[in-house]
Design a protein around this nucleic acid. Structure first.
Lengths: 1028, 170
DNA sequence: GCATTCGAGCTACACATG
DNA sequence: CATGTGTAGCTCGACTGT
């Protein structure tokens, strides 16, 4: 027995061969396959070299070890190479690829039984020699030691090393077959630990690696309560602070019905690219399964039909509603794909490329629409519009042949209507003319549908009376009825867009709609639809009003012809030559209830109330659509007295609400009524339940907006009181919806210029950032929009914003320090930046193009700087606050030309601040110095001969500063005033037209440091009245 | 020169808003990105100087970076193991390789003495990286009445064209 | 005292755009 | 394809804590 196996292979050659291979491999991936082979050859040859030790009791794998060492030698050279270096990435790929290569090689060889291969021979050897290696093959030993080596690197100090190491692991473990238990456990725990790495790049790789490891995890082996790898990845996907990590999770987590909801939730990720990927890289990609060998259209995990309707709706809502155009585009694209994949089973993708049958297109779209609940918001409409926009091939082929309308379904009616709206929006009149039906024919279609609906309603009622049907049957009928109703609604919508040039058609349509309205059975949801048609058909508002008033009287006074008996609309009636704008058979006369209320049975009362509700809805719908004055439409008087006023007095919520709204709408067109009713509305606010409160406030705001001069005008004595009232409401209000409504209303008043009060503006800002409104998105998003719009819309508004900044900032800092328990609060620094933005004249200039001239000359930021520097003399702010203020200065816009006075005052203030009350922390000091330098540079000329003149004015200033210096508390100001300010002083012995600086009342720093806690607590909600 | 005392016309913009159907045209789409409320607000820098042209033109003269290659050919001066040690081992004590808040799973057993830590954890979890619901607030809601959304507000005195879709003015 | 961590400015890259 | 813009990662400097 030889001590050494004869070596046909020189191990030293590895030292030169491997470097060559790796050197090649880094240049391109193209040579990788070739180099796998070469490397494998070396590996095999080397593995053949073994040494037996302990008299042959065990075998030392000398050659394998040498190869491993040489391999790791190469690999270690990659590890310190920072992310994004392609050559390093290639090597990692190469190493991982080699792992895969030998794994496959070894299994295939094993299967072939070529046990003579050196990779396998040691199986035999081992049995004989009782090797201490517990792996079976060379490849397994290789992988094992490779991974173990890499695992050691996971805790390296250098983040790059950690990154590379885990990158290697991630790439490698994808295809290592079974590995031993210990190694798996180590891998698992190490990688999970790296998910907590402070470097995002490392966490990213950990996520990728874990995603691959998750396939081999057995949840049953976990301890109770221990999260699975999958759960951990999903957690990272939602909560990791780095987009990079979340993105990696999104793209690598195994897709399954269990993980899908978490993936979908990323459609609202803060990071736009991630949102985009949800649509493009997840939803679109997996619509059909990856293995599309067979052309059969199969259903992937994210096939629209594999999703729930709620998920589909969420996808559409989030995708098409996204603020980022790129995300929207991805979502639109997805919807385009959906149309193709929901195409009716068995139909080939496209019969012949490019040739598309009109019928197919309609069928496709109907199938697409069936994915959605057409009544849910505007989801289906948005989805369809999107498809019509992106898929011109579809849009071009849409036609509605005659028979399209014969079997109308909700989808078909909806499709036609949305398509028409789409044509209208893009002014495609040609398409509109050629596809839409003629009015007369269409009126008959609506009539048919309506009559069928009425018929069904009666049938349903009859069936219900018999109580013979079961729940399912009832539900089915209910659904069928809603379908009919919906289809009619869509047809009516479409009717609005039709061309009424044809008088016959116009008359028919009018009679139809008029008839539908005056029948008592028309579902209430269709009232607005009918009114819209009626409005288009009416030559003017007065006629519209008159017709509706007539209808109301007919409804309330059934003695005028039995409405119930004739609620269907007959063909005869349509052809009837009645006067178009009113039926002569039903003369208007004061309606009279058949019986006094007192004599009514409860059933009769309920019925009368129902009729009144319907009439009120009709009134509201009509009043919403008109704008003539009340006085011009005397027919309204009757309705007001008989219907609206009584309803307002009712106790039933529904009646009262509708009554109030009607009354409010009347007030909008009747100034005197508004004046006399305003108090009524005000009195309703306080105690009303939420719904009513919202209504009443809406009325109040609308009335204020419409009759501005009556309430908030300059001469109005009540203006102040009304504003006060609104502010108090806002302050006290608990309900979020009401808060939001108040804010929207006040914002409108401010934007229209009716309210200019700075207190109100301040309150809005405070409400905006108050932690108390953190969950009130409606409110916050309204104000997010409002502030820039308000600021940029006029110089006066922007000045107003500037003026409130310092007082606001002071309140804010105090409040902030008192609230410091809450970390989710907006910092004063953040607010400061907002004000920089909102008061930026250039932003205003570009934002409102053409409306602001000379915005580049507007010195508003210079003035703001002056405010800020003055405030910085105060001792009331702490370090952070002063820093925030100082850092604002660097972001301000300094116009090229500016009044000498303004610059000089500012310069004087800055100089004095720096010498007498320099900020304590360096960041602030630097910012201030930088600003000072910027000032000096920019206004060099104007500051040149700035000294010794206008001396007296200077004295005034000096007094101000002496005053300031005197109030410095000596507590911690050792560095305070090195009074060698002489030098500075000579500079400041400079000019002044004091007008602007001299304490102009507003905001000289408070004379004494105040520390009253109780006061600040309310700072967020309390209107500022106390300060003024 | 600019005169701040020039009678400010509060109505300027309001007009514009109703005149063009959407005021998006009039506004830099930049600030629309700050729709999500103050916590997501960030300052988007505005192009200050028209003189930015020169700096940009001078730049691109730069040569592209030299092709970086990893040196595999030079034999290592040290043994693989020692190099690995150097690369891997040095974890300075007291240093943080991990994020502040330690693992959620293990922290469960800890006592509740450290309220601050517990709070941090909560806050950490609270920041799930998700946008708030978008209310799609727009100019429409600032220029229409609550009760008559079909009408846009016409600010006094100014006459506006009304194109078919805008239903009217008040 | 030092190392660490945090913030701020800078550079380089990727992206969208004309 | 070239260009400009916006962002992300990196490096440097100051602050804070064990």
């Amino acid at each position: 027995m030889p001590a050494k196996t004869p070596a046909p292979f020189d191990l030293a050659s590895l030292q030169s061969a491997l470097p060559k291979i790796f050197d090649q491999a880094q240049t391109t991936t193209a040579n990788h396959q070739k180099n796998f082979v070469a490397l494998y050859k070396l590996h095999s040859d080397a593995a053949a070299i073994t040494e037996s030790v302990q008299n042959g009791k065990s075998l030392k794998l000398t050659g394998e070890r040498a190869f491993q060492d040489a391999f790791l030698d190469m690999l270690t050279r990659v590890l310190p190479v920072k992310k994004g270096t392609t050559v390093a990435d290639r090597i990692v790929k190469f190493a991982a690829g080699y792992s895969k290569f030998i794994t496959e090689k070894s299994t295939s060889l094993f299967a072939e039984g070529s046990l003579h291969c050196s990779f396998c021979v040691d199986v035999e050897e081992r049995k004989k020699a009782e090797l201490d290696e517990d792996d079976d093959t060379t490849s397994e030993r290789f992988l094992n030691q490779l991974v173990r080596f890499l695992l050691k690197g996971c805790v390296a100090k250098d983040k790059v090393v950690r990154f590379r190491v885990i990158q290697c692991i991630a790439d490698t473990i994808a295809h290592l077959g079974e590995i031993d238990e210990d190694l798996y456990t180590d891998l698992r725990s190490t990688l999970l630990d790296r998910l907590r790495d402070k470097e995002p790049t490392v966490r990213t790789q950990a996520v990728i690696a874990l995603s691959k490891l998750s396939f081999s995890e057995d949840p049953s082996e976990l301890e109770e309560g221990e999260p699975t790898i999958l759960e951990t990845i999903l957690d990272a996907m939602a909560y990791d602070t780095s987009p990079e990590v979340r993105r990696a999770a999104l793209l690598n987590v195994p897709l399954s019905p269990q993980t899908l909801p978490a993936l979908l939730a990323r459609s609202r990720d803060v990071d736009a690219p991630i949102r985009k990927l949800v649509y493009s890289a997840v939803l679109e990609k997996y619509c059909t399964p990856p293995d599309l060998d067979n052309g059969r259209a199969t259903v992937g995990f994210t096939h629209p039909r594999a999703l729930t309707i709620a998920q589909r709706e969420m996808i559409v809502r989030n995708g098409l509603g996204d603020r980022e155009e790129t995300v929207k585009a991805a979502a639109r694209n997805l919807l385009g794909v959906w149309v193709d994949v929901v195409r009716v089973e068995g139909k080939p993708q496209k019969k012949e490329e490019g040739v598309k049958e009109e019928v197919d297109v309609i069928e496709d779209l109907v199938a697409f629409l069936k994915l959605f609940d057409l009544t849910e918001d505007t989801i289906a409409e948005d989805a369809l519009s999107s498809v019509l926009q992106t898929r011109m091939d579809i849009y071009e082929h849409i036609e509605f042949p005659e028979d399209y309308w014969t079997s109308i379904t909700p989808e078909r009616a909806f499709l036609a209507r949305v398509f028409a709206d789409q044509c209208l929006a893009k002014k495609d009149n040609l398409k509109l003319d050629t596809t839409l039906p003629v009015v007369t024919a269409f009126a008959f279609r609506i009539q048919d549908a309506y009559n069928a609906l009425v018929e069904q309603i009666h049938a349903d009622a009859a069936a219900a009376a018999l109580e013979e049907e079961d729940e399912d049957e009832r539900a089915r009928r209910e659904e069928a009825r809603l379908d009919r109703e919906f289809a009619i609604g869509e047809m009516l919508r479409l009717a609005v867009s039709l061309d009424y040039g044809d008088e016959i058609g116009r008359r028919k349509m009018f009679q139809l709609v008029r008839g539908m309205l005056s029948a008592g059975v028309l579902p209430e949801a269709l009232l607005p639809r009918c009114l819209d048609v009626l409005r288009v058909l009416s030559p003017n508002e007065r006629d519209l009003i008159r017709v509706v008033v007539e209808v109301v009287h007919e409804l309330r006074d059934p003695s005028e012809g039995d409405a119930d008996a004739e609620e269907g609309v007959s063909k005869a009636e349509l052809d009837d030559d009645a006067t178009e704008m009113g039926s002569p058979r039903r003369p208007v006369r004061p309606s009279q209830l058949p019986k006094p209320i007192a004599e009514m049975t409860p059933e009769e009362k309920a019925r009368a109330d129902a009729v009144d509700l319907r009439c009120l809805a009709l009134c509201i719908g009509m009043l919403e659509r008109v704008n003539g004055t009340f006085e011009e439409n005397s027919t309204l008087e009757g309705i007001l007295g008989e219907l609206i006023i009584p309803a307002v007095k009712r106790r039933e919520m529904a009646l009262r609400e509708k009554g109030l709204v009607s009354l409010g709408l009347c007030c909008l067109i009747a100034r005197r009524m508004a004046l006399s009713s305003f108090q009524l509305f005000l009195s309703q606010v306080q105690a009303a339940p939420e719904v009513l409160k919202i209504r009443v406030l809406q009325i109040i705001f609308d009335v204020l907006m419409v009759h501005e001069d009556a309430f908030l005008g300059p001469g109005s004595p009540n203006g102040e009181r009304i504003i006060e009232f609104l502010l108090q409401l806002l302050e006290a209000e608990e309900l979020e919806r009401v808060q939001a409504l108040l804010v929207v209303g006040i914002a409108k008043l401010m934007l229209s210029g009716m309210v200019t009060d700075e207190r109100v503006l301040q309150t809005l800002v405070l409400v905006f950032i108050s932690p108390e409104t953190a969950t009130n998105q409606e409110l916050r998003q309204c104000l997010s929009y409002f502030f820039p719009v308000y600021s940029y819309s006029s110089a006066a508004n922007q000045q107003r914003m500037r003026k409130i900044f310092i007082p606001l900032f002071e309140r804010l800092t105090k409040a902030y320090h008192d609230w410091d328990g809450e970390e989710d609060m907006v910092t004063p620094a953040q607010v400061a930046l907002m004000f920089v933005d909102w008061t930026d004249p250039m932003r205003a200039g570009t934002a409102a193009k053409g409306l602001r001239k000379d915005s580049e000359k507007d010195p508003i930021h210079l003035e703001l700087a002056t405010d800020i520097v003055k405030a910085l003399f105060s001792v009331d702010y702490d370090k952070e606050d002063k820093k925030a203020l100082c850092q604002m200065l660097g972001k301000l816009y300094l116009p090229d030309e500016v009044d000498d006075d303004k610059v000089r005052v500012l310069k004087l203030l800055v100089t004095n601040l720096r010498s007498r009350r320099p900020p304590r922390d360096t960041a602030a000091k630097n910012a201030l110095a930088k600003f000072d330098a910027a000032l000096s540079k920019k206004y060099e000329k104007q500051l040149e001969n700035f000294s010794e003149e206008e001396f007296r004015k200077l004295e005034e200033l000096r007094e101000l500063f002496e005053f300031l210096d005197d109030i410095i508390p000596d507590e911690d100001d050792e560095e305070e005033a090195p009074r060698k300010g002489r030098k500075r002083r000579s500079l400041s012995v400079a000019t002044e037209t004091t007008t602007s600086v001299a304490t102009s009342g507003d905001r000289s720093p408070p004379p004494s440091p105040r520390r009253g806690k109780a006061k600040y607590v309310c700072a967020f909600t309390a209107p500022i009245s106390s300060e003024h | 020169p600019f005169d701040p005392r020039r009678a400010p016309n509060d109505r300027d913009l309001v007009m514009a808003m109703t005149d063009g159907d959407n005021m998006m045209d009039y506004f830099d789409s930049n600030f629309l990105k700050n729709w999500a409320g103050p916590e997501h607000w960030k300052l988007r820098k505005v192009v200050r100087r028209p003189d930015a042209s020169e700096a940009a033109a001078a730049r691109p003269k730069r040569e592209k970076k030299e092709a970086f290659k990893i040196d595999f050919l030079t034999p290592a001066e040290e043994d693989v193991k020692t190099r690995a040690k150097k690369l891997f081992a040095p974890v300075t004590r007291g240093a943080g390789i991990n994020l502040p808040g330690p693992s959620t799973a293990k922290a469960a057993a800890k006592k509740g003495g450290r309220r601050k830590k517990a709070k941090e954890q909560d806050v950490e979890k609270r920041y799930d990286q998700t946008l708030p619901d978008d209310m799609h607030f727009s100019s429409k809601q600032l220029v229409t009445l609550f009760l008559k959304p079909k009408f846009s507000l016409k600010m006094r005195g100014y006459h506006l064209r009304s194109d078919g879709r805008v239903d009217g003015e008040i």
